[in-house]
Write a protein that binds this DNA or RNA. Structure first.
Lengths: 231, 231
DNA sequence: GGATGTGAAGTAGTTCACAGCC
DNA sequence: GGCTGTGAACTACTTCACATCC
């Protein structure tokens, strides 16, 4: 079951969130025809120190060569493996308003083994229309099996949608609604909230130019999951 | 210059990213007619411990009452003050494709003193059209002054747009393009990247149900700023 | 009684500094 | 020489536990 080199090590949360960034950087380098890259350069492009890059990558096993850095092919392979890019994920999008439509049409969104399998909405005017090759289904229909659901409904509908998804055995939610969701233990929720990002930027604007005094802003978006249903 | 109570304390990065969440929760409580709230409840709804909530809020000054929690009006006021909601921000959106359009139309986006002042695109078919009460300008025109720019252009155009914005004295960028930007010291960049969020979710799906063994996922989005222009 | 605010302890993450290997 | 990988030091954040005040 474990074809990979050998190193099922547990990665830290910050490391996990940086790996996709490294991956993108390395792929960019790869597509320029480069064959090797070092931790200093990755760090510079990612906005973190070279040491952090090395520690993060060391967590995936021994993949560099002392003296000459990393081979890009190896990095892409191993990071992809760690992030589960070899597996395949069924994704559904619920709420085909402006944002949902934009996401579905976005080329950046469906990537890395994620496969869009269904779109849902509650509006009869939208149900039945076709977006990006998919006919929008009614949220009241039975849900097709999926691993991840993207929630793009208005905030006051988000909790009900989440409940329905969880009942249909979807335990990974990417929530774009500005609404904190209450979910059972074992369900992962990730929030993407534009207004929160804006607010964080504003804070930094008001209080000096960034966290690290100078300008290296290495701040983080916010995401949270509730530990359990309201007791 | 400092009309606030008194407490210019520096807040930690994690605290800053949680404050908008608390704010939203407290406002929700407020709009239900409630007048008080305690740290346990806020924590439960935000997915963090009550102690964390208290520490975060203590950073804003002494605003609770021992024995009976916090007054919602006071919380909303003080959190808003800390995040700079009393000030006003000019926001421009560059790139009026599917996503840009969705953001502009979104009611959640423009909030808290952020005022949309201009939209830009490079496509002659889009320039001149009206979206949400704003006529789209050409990115080649002179830019109107702004504090924050939202970048929704394709990845390969993002760096050029960022350069142009920085030259026009915009030093806070919210970048939706899946592209790491290289900016000078003193410019803050915040990344919002759907595919990265998806990848992080996927990682957790593959490796147990979440970071904290059980299910409390309190993970973070990713954002980074480059320390300086490529040397 | 009950919930805040906070020292003190604990845990996690980052950075330093350098040994090890190419 | 150069760059990785990593123990050790450091820094940051969280959690505990409780004194404090309503």
């Amino acid at each position: 079951m474990a074809p990979s080199h050998l190193r099922p090590r547990k990665l830290s949360e910050p490391t996990i969130s940086r790996l996709p960034v490294y991956q993108r950087i390395v792929e960019g380098w790869q597509s320029r025809g480069e064959t090797r890259i070092d931790s200093r350069l990755i760090g510079e492009l990612a906005g973190v120190t070279a040491t952090t890059v090395r520690r993060d990558l060391a967590g995936l096993g021994t993949l560099g060569t002392r003296g000459s850095g990393y081979e890009v092919d190896v990095l892409v392979e191993r990071i992809g493996e760690a992030l589960g890019h070899n597996r395949s994920y069924e994704v559904v999008v619920v709420g085909i308003g402006n944002l949902g439509r934009a996401l579905v049409k976005s080329t950046n969104f469906l990537i890395r083994g994620a496969r869009l399998v269904a779109l849902y909405d509650s509006d009869p005017h939208i149900v039945g229309t076709e977006i990006g090759g998919h006919v929008v289904r009614s949220i009241d229909d039975e849900l097709v099996p999926a691993t991840v659901a993207v929630i793009c409904v208005p905030p006051d509908a988000a909790q009900a949608v989440a409940d329905k998804l969880i009942a249909a055995d979807v335990h990974a939610l990417l929530n774009f609604a500005p609404q904190v969701l209450t979910v059972p233990l074992g369900t992962a929720v990730h929030y993407v909230d534009f207004s929160i990002e804006l607010q964080i930027l504003m804070y930094h604007l008001n209080n000096g130019t960034g966290p690290l005094g100078g300008g290296l802003l290495h701040s983080l978006g916010i995401a949270a999951t509730n530990p359990m249903r309201s007791p």
